[in-house]
Write a protein that binds this DNA or RNA. Sequence first.
DNA 1: GATGAATGAGCATTCATTCAT
DNA 2: CATGAATGAATGCTCATTCAT
Lengths: 195, 195, 195, 195
Amino acid sequence: MAIAEKNQRKREILEAALTCFSESGIESTTIDHIRAKSGASVGSIYHHFSNKEGVATALYIGALEDHANQQFALLEQANSAEQCIKSLVYAYVDWVTANPELALFMQQARGYVLNGTHAEALISRNRERLGQLLPYLQRHHENGSLRLFPKELYNSLVLGATKDYCRIWLSGRAKTSPMEYREMLADAAWRTVAI
Amino acid sequence: MAIAEKNQRKREILEAALTCFSESGIESTTIDHIRAKSGASVGSIYHHFSNKEGVATALYIGALEDHANQQFALLEQANSAEQCIKSLVYAYVDWVTANPELALFMQQARGYVLNGTHAEALISRNRERLGQLLPYLQRHHENGSLRLFPKELYNSLVLGATKDYCRIWLSGRAKTSPMEYREMLADAAWRTVAI
Amino acid sequence: MAIAEKNQRKREILEAALTCFSESGIESTTIDHIRAKSGASVGSIYHHFSNKEGVATALYIGALEDHANQQFALLEQANSAEQCIKSLVYAYVDWVTANPELALFMQQARGYVLNGTHAEALISRNRERLGQLLPYLQRHHENGSLRLFPKELYNSLVLGATKDYCRIWLSGRAKTSPMEYREMLADAAWRTVAI
Amino acid sequence: MAIAEKNQRKREILEAALTCFSESGIESTTIDHIRAKSGASVGSIYHHFSNKEGVATALYIGALEDHANQQFALLEQANSAEQCIKSLVYAYVDWVTANPELALFMQQARGYVLNGTHAEALISRNRERLGQLLPYLQRHHENGSLRLFPKELYNSLVLGATKDYCRIWLSGRAKTSPMEYREMLADAAWRTVAI
DNA sequence: GATGAATGAGCATTCATTCAT
DNA sequence: CATGAATGAATGCTCATTCAT
């Protein structure tokens, strides 16, 4: 379970919220839905999270953290440029298929959360995470095994296809799990950026 | 302008709605916002479009049509597998950079419109359009110049990176116009599916 | 009736609100109380007044206007310093006894309305009204028939006792109508500021 | 400091409440505001005072007591009708300028506290206090140095102007401290009721 | 005495939609 | 076709109060 929260009540609320969000979308989910599904009272929800936005943000940050951790775990085992690139695809596919509800939520959440009060905190955190990623890749640039691309294009080239298919799958428009295309997507990613 | 509507009042409403939608999101846009921006009355909006959903759907369908037309115009000039694949990228980049407001709207709209009354009509229309696309590609499959992939993966492999970067650009997280990366993205797409 | 509003619906709402406000206080009156008493719908209330505060402000301004008009009507008939001063007391007593609900409301409203969005408009309007009052009094200063006091003290010296008794009467703590003490209060006011 | 309360925690709560009340009004002040300002916990507030109303009432009664004491202290030194009347003004002005926060609170509190559970206790206490006042004045009536007025009008005639100006000053609408007008107000009061 | 999590009735306000003119 | 007043269900949120620890 990607929702790591010690306090039981908070966890119950977050889990209920996640289900509601991924079933009906964030904006269509009402506090009362979350209340009904979580068993907590309205007041309790507001006691632990200041806002509906607060609930979404807590979920969002937790998921981001979780995904980043798994990504780094895989990256650290990679010994070549190829393994490195493929790790990124693996990490994405693995996380999405392991947490489809959260993954679906994350797609809607960006627009919702990034308009809220916590936008700046999130953006700086994201930058930081990206900064941690770069050293891994740069190592291989120097070896000459990676094509040169504008930095801002890299992520899209490596993960674009994977993200797109995952999105389609999560929305129900494709039936086959990304897991089955894991290698294919990793190969394609590597082909895209390899010399 | 991608909004082709002869009736002036209807066009005014659609244009106002588009601006509102892309500024604040579809769900956060109220009929009253559209009324204020368009200069039409509430009653008039409901007279021309039966619904808020009706406004969004009209916009959505018009944009889809427009994009498809441009896509086919480019595809018809393509003489090789490579030109064919690249045309798809070009068409996407060109349309998005020419209609950024509409493009932003389309991303949010899918979720909104596909829950509404017109969902089925849209889905079948989409299938149809995809059906029109296939002959172009199949021609080249038979020539053996394209890799074999599961059909449902094709779109993501070809357009995934492009769509991802466009999304980032539209959201303001990247500054460089996709237009500048048009060739790079087209090359990458071709490299991904070429033998 | 001190509520002069041509639009019938608006008047119904204002009258209902006044009754509620003077019965239960402004803060304790809910929009739903006003809705029930006025027969209008919630939406209609918000259509005509942007706010609960908007309702209170409309009432407040209307009452202020009405009282000021009556005050000037009396003042214009006054030919001496004494008549002038007494007119102010008469106007106050007459208005309060003629509009006890409104008068009660005005006392609570000051604190409520003057914190809201319209505070500044009200303050400047009040200053203006006070400005119109001064010429009447100054005429008599020059005749030497009035004691000299700091300007900011004048109002309290002339009307303080009247206001205080009216307040007590409105709150139910005194039973005798201020109307019965009209002359006594006017005499006292005159004695306070006369040479 | 007019808040005399031996128990430190209770005093902290009362002082915090007073500040909140006079800053934002009684109804707008929440238990949580008081909690934050006092440093006590919600539970602690409810332990010491059974209610929000209980907090306000404690404050109200304490202030009433304090003011009454000062009033009698001055009255007892008065040897003539004139000194007696003026003492009442002095006591009022002195107390208000010494305890502006409390004074502001008292004005709002009447309406709030007199609707609550303790209303009757307060009213009878007030009557009692008024009863204690009468002998002082009656002494001078018999001497013929005071005008005859209906009993219920007396307080307003003597203190009306003073109360009114203090109210204006407390609300910030007048800048000059009542202290500076102490003699003027006392003279005016005397002129109003003297033969 | 102290703490703060939990409760839930209550409230102001929003907004899509209808309909008489 | 156009207008905008009217409707009322729905929603996010507040806050006094209780109570287990």
